[in-house]
C-alpha cells in the first residue's frame, strides 16, 4: 500500500446540532476517505452529516503565552466565594 493520508472527521448528530470532532481516518485518497468515513461514522444512523478535513488543512495553535500571569482574564482568576457570601448576607438569603 502506498502512503496514506489522514482526514479529520466531524459529524453532526441531528439537524441543527453543531459539527463535532468524531475522530480521524487514514486513507490513500479522497474516495477511500469517503467510503471509510461512511462506514466508521455513519452506518449506525449516528450521523446526519459528516465533514472530512485533510489534516494538512487544519491550522493548529498550541502556544498561549501569559508572561505576566494575567489571571484576571481567566475564569479561575477570581475567588468569588467570599464575596458571594457577603452579598447573600446583605440580601438576607444566606443558605443553611
Amino acid at each position: 500500500m502506498t502512503a496514506t493520508r489522514v482526514w479529520e472527521v466531524f459529524r453532526r448528530e441531528r439537524a441543527g446540532a453543531p459539527m463535532q470532532h468524531a475522530g480521524s481516518i487514514a486513507a490513500p485518497d479522497e474516495r477511500f476517505a469517503e467510503i471509510y468515513a461512511r462506514e466508521q461514522y455513519g452506518r449506525r444512523g449516528e450521523s446526519e452529516a459528516l465533514w472530512l478535513v485533510p489534516r494538512g488543512a487544519v491550522a493548529e495553535i498550541d502556544d498561549f503565552v501569559d508572561e505576566f500571569d494575567l489571571k484576571y482574564r481567566r475564569v479561575d482568576g477570581y475567588s468569588i466565594k467570599e464575596r458571594l457570601r457577603e452579598a447573600r448576607e446583605r440580601a438576607g438569603t444566606v443558605e443553611g
Binding site: A26, I35, E39
Partner: peptide, 12 residues
C-alpha cells in the same frame, strides 16, 4: 484486511 479502515469497510 490490508489496513484498519479497510477491515471495517470490508466487514461492513
Amino acid at each position: 484486511a490490508p489496513f484498519l479502515e479497510e477491515d471495517v469497510a470490508f466487514s461492513s
